[in-house]
Design a protein around this nucleic acid. Structure first.
Lengths: 144, 144
DNA sequence: TTGACAGATAATAATAGTTATTATTTAATA
DNA sequence: TATTAAATAATAACTATTATTATCTGTCAA
């Protein structure tokens, strides 16, 4: 971790309007140092090396705070429980980042090509699942 | 529920190589009759109307079975826990349906346009999160 | 500097969602 | 029909997450 990174974090917090704390700074630095898609538990393990007394709940709260403030994204909006897709037609999802509502949109209406093909990496693509993240009409009205 | 639907289900089970049971048939019919993205709990509530003695665990097991067999999809491959995106560059995900691995792919390499715009439905699209579902190189080798 | 307040944290209890276990029941088949 | 493998019901256990609450920390006015 560098002084530059700490200053960067302070600037981000200033913009987001959240106070800087030692715990927050460490969680931020740990996240920046990690690769892939870590779980809160994994973040907690690493943060504990530097702050042994930290609580898992604090890690959760600050990860949520970072996500709300736009410092990080979550890998995919997860619903807290398994959900079954009952619409058998090819479609994608409009996900409102504000109210978390999920609306179907026919694949044709989105105009993203869906065809099985092999990517450069060797991955065999069979299906695209697209989440269009944004604001639903209702939330557009009720926001500044 | 119709006789045709029951026969359709028998045919699907036959193809998938899973035995037909009364519970399975009812869960299938209930799913077919529902709209949107129901949770196992919601499915359970409806199935109980017809089979009061059914267990929630049975509903879970069969929903998973249906998903594995391809009769239904889950709304989004979710990890069972919150995951933080540590890659700050615009990218999407290659999700292997076999081993569940998630690999990043740069947005440019996928060639899907990402621009904020308003859809016909009035939804304000700000960002696309694309899951490319398919088979990773390893799983392609180890499958028939 | 001190004192008071607001917000953040630590510890922990509680809850929700899911899975494992096991005895019993059912379906497939000889 | 009898046998056996698999499915189910009941329930315990587990994991991920959130709520609660007492304590602590930093900030700002006197």
């Amino acid at each position: 971790m560098t002084v530059a990174e700490a200053n960067e974090f302070r600037a981000l917090c200033d913009t987001a309007g959240i106070p800087v704390t030692h715990q927050r700074l460490v969680i931020y630095q740990v996240l920046r140092s990690m690769h892939g898609h870590p779980s809160p538990e994994e973040v907690y393990e690493r943060v504990r090396v530097r702050i042994p007394a930290i609580s898992l709940a604090t890690v959760y709260k600050n990860i949520h705070l970072f996500i709300e403030s736009g410092l990080f994204h979550e890998v995919s909006l997860h619903h807290g429980s398994l959900r079954v897709e009952t619409n058998a037609l090819p479609h994608h999802h409009l996900v409102c980042t504000e109210c978390k509502s999920i609306t179907d949109i026919a694949a044709d209406d989105l105009g993203i090509p869906v065809r099985a093909h092999r990517l450069r990496s060797g991955f065999l693509a069979q299906r695209y699942a697209v989440d269009v993240l944004g604001l639903c009409p209702d939330c557009q009205k009720s926001l500044p």
